[in-house]
Design a protein around this nucleic acid. Structure first.
Lengths: 284, 284
DNA sequence: GCGCCTTTGGAATAAAAATTCTACCATGGT
DNA sequence: ACCATGGTAGAATTTTTATTCCAAAGGCGC
């Protein structure tokens, strides 16, 4: 139980705590218990707050951190904070470096994109709110027709959605810029729209979402920031932040979200034909 | 700019930000954008860190908080810290939760697709042969025109490739089934083709690849199995096995491969304009 | 082109928090 | 019962962080 090595991850830390917690003095054990049951508090609390929560003095909590191998509370807290904030590296500069150094062999590039995709997926799992997802699916499953709009970079997502919905026998209409002026009026109040756009946001997509919203249709937005112009004109908004690589992103997370929507809506519609719903509407 | 009312929830705050963000001074708008895209950072960062992230001085960020109606950064941070508890857990725990809490519900589906995507990505990194990748990129970079064909499910990949190549100023032509019979003859011997198809393979795609191959063009195939009908008619073949869940797959890995191709070809073409190549052609 | 008002950067100040220190207390051994 | 060991509380100190202030820069209408 020497203090030379600080845990490098939260898992390690919890392991360590479990190991030593038996032969820990009373107060320190209180700290261990409190941290074990409220690990989420560490990142956003001061020592004083943690100490109070554990029912000990700040100095006792301090000693607890040191027993664990940290120099103090701050160092331990850093661990928790880093694991929370999605701290993906700056891929734009990494890409530049790869280019300049000439070490930009394609396989290295591929590795970077794979890594970026992995992070994006993890982040998706962390940030999606199940309730919003449920509500989006409900809206889509109840619609007479699902309109899909996504241009430029988002077009591949839109086309995937359109294809997959079609496969699931969900009535679908894919909008593109060519015929958009006409098709805009095809959206009725009992329809639903999926609008997809990322920064820099495509005005056409936003405009169509707006029109649909005013017409009384449900609008599900898929976008990359809470400040998206899509926000005010959607009934449900799903934010997906992809790790981007300069001007490019691989859309891994967005596509995963898309396929989830399709399958969930498809099964929900079948369930409804049999008079049941998979979405909980009754319980809290 | 009345500062009388501090937002009482994050939603209110975002609404407020959206309202005023248009007539905000430059630096303050930077703050707004940064907060909107990284709302989760607020809970665990200091003003100094936030300011650096937004590319402004701490004092500017301070003013931003006050414009929003808070007394200062601390008050705004409190808001974020209070709502923090829900979405703290790290990826593994969160995924577990999604799976269990919503067995049969959309969030469980999302968990499955996220996991499937991760597996696919991992697998992609392992199975792609760097030499084949290099050679595919070489072929594409040397082509006068890159033709892209992918239908049905593969169409979203094809459209992404077309969009991204366009962005990189690589001459590109996206083929679809509508005009295909004509465009088939547009492929010349010094062109290259990217053909994408997955089981059950689309005959049109294979046929176009075949024609191009006979015409002497390089054909890069993206497919899902070594037994793909694309194999005999391609000069380079890249196999991507997506882990599927049910009948659906999210194409995470395929899109990552696609974006790699685009960036690599783009940089390679620029490098060639300067008389150098990033691909090793001499050494083993 | 001049002056006023707004915005900005950076240093100065104040507040809060972390960390250490020291005296005091409990426990276990002789 | 006394001493030694180790633990604890609370105050003192140091460090970090938030916040304010002011001078300089920038923009806009006149």
């Amino acid at each position: 139980m020497d203090a030379r090595s600080a845990p490098a991850s939260i898992e390690q830390l919890l392991d360590r705590m479990l190991q030593i917690s038996d032969d820990l003095p009373k107060r320190l054990k209180q700290c261990a218990d409190y941290v074990a049951t409220n690990p989420d508090r560490v990142a956003v609390s001061t020592v004083a707050e943690m100490a109070e929560g554990a029912g000990v003095q700040p100095s006792a909590f301090m000693r607890f951190c040191q027993v664990l191998g940290f120099s103090g509370y701050s160092q331990m807290q850093r661990l928790f904070r880093e694991s929370y904030a999605q701290n993906w590296p700056d891929y734009a500069t990494r890409l530049e470096k790869l280019r300049e150094s000439g070490a930009g062999r394609p396989s290295a590039l591929l590795a970077e994109f794979v890594e970026a995709g992995r992070l994006s997926l993890e982040n998706l799992a962390k940030t999606i709110d199940p309730q919003v997802l449920d509500s989006a699916i409900k809206a889509l499953a109840e619609a007479h027709m699902v309109h899909i709009v996504g241009l430029r970079r988002a077009f591949s997502v839109a086309s995937y959605l359109a294809y997959a919905f079609e496969k699931m026998n969900v009535p679908t209409m894919l909008h593109d810029s060519v015929g958009m002026l006409d098709s805009r009026h095809a959206i009725r109040a009992d329809d639903a729209v999926i609008a997809i756009t990322f920064a820099p946001y495509t005005p056409e997509t936003v405009k169509l979402a707006e029109t649909a919203h005013h017409a009384g249709a449900d609008v599900v937005g898929i976008t990359d920031s809470l400040a998206s112009p899509l926000r005010p004109v959607t009934t449900q908004i799903l934010t997906v932040s992809e790790a981007d690589f300069g001007d490019f992103r691989s859309l891994s997370a967005t596509l995963s979200l898309a396929v989830t929507l399709v399958v969930a809506v498809g099964t929900e519609m079948r369930a409804r034909e049999n008079g049941i719903s998979l979405l909980r509407s009754d319980d809290k």
